[in-house]
Design a protein around this nucleic acid. Sequence first.
DNA 1: GTGGTGTACTGGTCAGACCAGACATTGGTC
DNA 2: GACCAATGTCTGGTCTGACCAGTACACCAC
Lengths: 256, 256
Amino acid sequence: MPLTSDHGLRTPDGVAATLEQLILDGVFRPGQLLPSERRLCDKLGVSRSSLREGLRILRSKGVIDTRHGRGSSVAQLVPPRDDNPLMHLFKSQPRTLYDLLEVRALLEGESAFLAASRGTPADRVLITRHYLEMADYVAEAGIIDVERLARLDHAFHLAICQASHNPVLVHTLQSLTDLLLSSVFASVKNLYHRAEPREMINRQHADLHEAVVQGKPALAKRVALEHLTSIGERLRDIEVETQRLERSAMRLEGWE
Amino acid sequence: MPLTSDHGLRTPDGVAATLEQLILDGVFRPGQLLPSERRLCDKLGVSRSSLREGLRILRSKGVIDTRHGRGSSVAQLVPPRDDNPLMHLFKSQPRTLYDLLEVRALLEGESAFLAASRGTPADRVLITRHYLEMADYVAEAGIIDVERLARLDHAFHLAICQASHNPVLVHTLQSLTDLLLSSVFASVKNLYHRAEPREMINRQHADLHEAVVQGKPALAKRVALEHLTSIGERLRDIEVETQRLERSAMRLEGWE
DNA sequence: GTGGTGTACTGGTCAGACCAGACATTGGTC
DNA sequence: GACCAATGTCTGGTCTGACCAGTACACCAC
């Protein structure tokens, strides 16, 4: 029985769809040699011209690999597209948070480096303004609004990044920061709530601001990296602590 | 004399390359109807089967749009994938390309560093396999299929990135690479078409592969950075050259 | 004017032939 | 027995000419 039942349009697109489905179904496995063109014509009930155009589609998509005199084989790397939003990773893999911090540290470091070397006087004025706004708030506010502080913090880092004059860098860092904030905002809140990490962060912000404004690229980069690294460490501390608390809570539930 | 001189292999790939170049050169403009298949066969000196396979390639890539009884026209949006927020930057600001390369170099460098320090033996086997596949193809193929080479190239770099065991890094780099390829694929093609840059790239790939597999993080990072830097320089060279060519008349007789 | 109709295009498919590369088998030589 | 070249038959690659099927437009009857 011919295989034309499903996508059986006798057309190149139908051929491509049918063969692709067969590959996805595992009938033809990666590396395996497909039947010859003549044989496929028979099976699919199309002329060789149409079949060849169908194969051409799959070849363009990198699904198959054809060699003269040998035949067509299913490409080894079949999964070509994986449009997974990064967000889903966080649910299955908490470790991803530190992966994200790792990449963000890299970008923040480069950002600070470029800002210190390329930043114009106008950039520096802007960076200083954001820095002072944040520092003043921390120093003067009796009770800290964590969300507002997070915004000021973000604005300060963003100003530095924009001084790099690299829009791609700005965009990439922005999206990673958004991802970080939306996924672990609770942790970040905890970070700001505690006096000890907050002072550490303030100190690092002061150092970063100074290095960038004074035009010391290498120093700025180093400070930025240390900043992100220690944030990662503190978040890990909080995580461990949270887990301990959760275990206690579970024990308490048992008594109810 | 027919226009088969440049990519004038009488083969579907040659047809696709020739027509694509004519479109890029502005001989055929977006929305414009191409000559009929029979006429193109005449002009390009190929049979209708080969021509149709060539058109099928361009159709798969979204370069042309074909309607039964009407003809084939150049697609309006040559890069139809405009879902990336960064894409609009490229239209207004060609400089963005170099910004993108700058960020990509940063990520590739870190990628290579981490792969060399964290990569498992299995990672190294995979990296080597992809490297050899690419190197063998370059060495053995008489005529280079640029798209295939680009895929092999991409697979090699992706394997290195995956050896970093940081999914965030993989995802970020992937999206930047996609953006790069979809926006300046023409330039990249030119890069592969020339012997001198191709040899330079091969040498750098060999160095990168060796450094990663032998577990030399610092060296791997340096080689990766040099690789991306020199690619940027070559692209700039090509850009300058292209502008010079565009200033020269590109009117072709008989194409109306 | 309006509406149908014919006709000359367009792409889509088919069949059969031949060319060219790859490879296993065969048959020879050493 | 080991090696190597000739060869036959697979494979994909290309060409030809024919016919089918949609589209567009000029033409003609109303």
